[in-house]
């Protein structure tokens, strides 16, 4: 935390304000992902519960990634269909895009 030069208000600077740090965090995530992929082949994976798909190499990694995309890609059209104004149940109606401009 540091003091704002222009006033007495404390204006904290967090690590999220430092793009380099955030970038480094992503790098850590990717490296970790790489290690986990390699680990599957190094450590081997017991297929204790034989499921036709589970046995495929990297099944969980692919499934985890694909699940997020599937989830969001289905949620988007769902929003188009279901979105209403915030006061919908108090008599409001359609959602207007500019209500987010507050």
């Amino acid at each position: 935390m540091s003091h704002d030069d222009h006033g007495s208000l404390k204006e904290p600077i967090g690590w999220m304000d430092k793009p380099d740090l955030v970038k480094r965090l992503f790098t850590v995530l990717y490296v970790l992902a790489g290690i986990l992929l390699v680990a599957e082949f190094v450590l081997g994976r017991e297929n204790a519960h034989p499921h036709p798909w589970e046995g495929m190499p990297l099944f969980y990694a692919v499934y985890g990634f694909a699940s997020f995309w599937f989830l969001v890609l289905l949620a988007r059209p769902m929003r188009k269909l279901l979105i209403r104004s915030e006061d919908y149940y108090e008599g409001g109606g359609r959602y207007e895009e500019d209500s987010d401009a507050e």
Partner: peptide, 20 residues
């Protein structure tokens, strides 16, 4: 066990990459 920890971490890590 190794497998359970590994596959769960894969699911979560690649899910997180999906989010990013």
């Amino acid at each position: 066990d190794t497998t359970h920890v590994l596959v769960q971490l894969q699911l979560l890590c690649f899910g997180a990459i999906g989010f990013v």
